[in-house]
Simulated assay, not measured.
Amino acid sequence: MNDWKMHQWDLSPYSVTPAASLLSRCVSVGAASQEEIDSAFSDPNPVFSLHLHETEEQIRKQKQLDEVQLQLELLKLEEQSADVTHGFHLSEFHFLQLCD
């Protein structure tokens, strides 16, 4: 029983979390450096990886571009429907003037 307690005690302070394992693999394959990881834990606004930061920026910019393109499409549709609606109402108004 004493052996089991010693084994349990040895594992708990030194167990490797999945996150630590992932970080270790990133360093080993060169996807991140140990310095990047260390700075990420010491910086109030951490940037884990320059590549990740650049990718996040690209995604953010693409999202903004998509939103602007959607707004442009909506404005074009409003313009088209306004032209049709405006013409219809003008012809109705013209017809009513002729009837008077």
Rank of each mutant, 00 (worst) to 15 (best):
Q97D: 06
P44Q: 02
P18S: 07
N2P: 12
A20D: 04
H53C: 09
L50S: 09
L75M: 05
A82Q: 13
A32E: 01
A40N: 02
H86K: 08
E73Y: 07
Q71Y: 02
E92V: 09
S24E: 07
P13S: 05
E79W: 01
A19M: 14
H51K: 13
F88N: 02
I59S: 11
F88D: 02
A19S: 14
S21C: 04
T17E: 04
Q58Y: 11
P18A: 07
W4L: 15
V29G: 02
E57W: 09
I59P: 09
A19L: 14
D3A: 15
L98D: 07
H86Y: 09
A20R: 04
E92A: 07
V29D: 12
L22S: 10
L22D: 07
G87E: 11
Q58D: 13
T55K: 10
K63E: 08
R25W: 10
K61E: 11
P46W: 00
D66A: 03
D10P: 01
S15L: 14
F93M: 07
L96A: 13
H89S: 06
D100W: 11
Q58G: 09
T55P: 00
T17H: 03
T85I: 08
L72K: 14
L11M: 15
N45E: 14
L23F: 12
L98A: 10
E36D: 11
D83T: 07
G87Y: 08
E35F: 04
Y14Q: 02
V29E: 13
L75Q: 05
E54N: 12
E78Y: 00
Y14M: 00
W4K: 12
S42E: 08
F41Q: 04
L77F: 00
Q34C: 06
R25T: 07
D3R: 13
S28Q: 14
Q97C: 12
S42A: 06
F41P: 02
L70F: 04
N2D: 14
E92D: 06
L23R: 10
E67I: 00
G30Q: 00
G30E: 01
L70M: 04
D100E: 12
I37S: 02
E54L: 14
M6Y: 13
A40R: 00
E73H: 10
Q69A: 09
S12P: 04
K61G: 01
N2V: 13
K76Q: 11
P46Y: 00
Q80L: 05
T17Y: 00
R25K: 12
H89Q: 11
K63T: 09
H86L: 08
L77S: 01
G30L: 00
F41D: 03
H51A: 14
K61Y: 07
K76H: 06
Q34R: 13
Q8T: 10
T17A: 03
P13E: 06
H53G: 08
L52E: 05
W4R: 14
L50Q: 11
Q62Y: 05
P44L: 04
H94S: 15
